[in-house]
Write a protein that binds this DNA or RNA. Sequence first.
DNA 1: CTAGGAGCTGGAGTCGCCTCTAGGTCAAGA
DNA 2: TCTTGACCTAGAGGCGACTCCAGCTCCTAG
Lengths: 133, 133
Amino acid sequence: MLGSMSLSIGQVAERTGLSVHALRFYEKEGILANQVHRGPGGRRVYTQQDVDWLRMCIMLRMSGMPVPEIRRYTELVRQGDGNELQRLEILKEHQERVRQQMAQLQDCMDLITHKVGVYQDYVNSIAAKAVGQ
Amino acid sequence: MLGSMSLSIGQVAERTGLSVHALRFYEKEGILANQVHRGPGGRRVYTQQDVDWLRMCIMLRMSGMPVPEIRRYTELVRQGDGNELQRLEILKEHQERVRQQMAQLQDCMDLITHKVGVYQDYVNSIAAKAVGQ
DNA sequence: CTAGGAGCTGGAGTCGCCTCTAGGTCAAGA
DNA sequence: TCTTGACCTAGAGGCGACTCCAGCTCCTAG
């Protein structure tokens, strides 16, 4: 049964791109929607849902959401139905931050592109002179 | 004469948004195109060019260029004419990184926007039910 | 039966980028 | 004269997010 396939920490590391260290760290930080079960020898047993959840968390992290806020969100999800408004708030706030970050990045990009243009022209003009001689 | 107006570290902090700590740190890290002169009592004296340079460095930092690479770039500028190709390389590499970062951020944004939409619909539907009762 | 490899824990270490502290100088205003 | 406030230095401290280490348990293959 695909839906209940169980995965080792190493397999989850492969599938998510996180290190096994990071996976244990995230678990300690409370960033797993359902707690990880343990197999023989105390080994962590993950499911595909865990992988999916982690992939979303990775997106949140990549876009700059701090670990404590991901934890807050995770806790809401763990609590179950009834707090959707709070989840929505967190997501909306983050969305706004990402929007600002992108705008900022675009400004930086504009400046860099401008400078690249200037240097490119200059370098080209030097090259042209060299050929002309 | 506007062009040669001299500024204290506090004024530069105001104009750039950096803290005085950060300004001294940046200087120690070699992130100033021309070295800062000292006035009476050993106080730093900045010029408008320094402010302009710092503003550009801030853009580079904001877009994720690490301090050591900003230093490399600064050193090239300090060395003067002849290394424009190297400067161009640095800028182009960084430009590419920023491009990737923006694409990544856009992916995150898409996911977040999707989730916000889903939660918004759900929350709205709950609200509608409440009104309907 | 032993060597390798994956996993476990708790806690220490690292890295990047500042930020702050301690202990001082100096100039101007009350 | 005293205090305030901006500045100085060298170096310590802090924060976020991992990353790594020591020392352990298993399991499997040779």
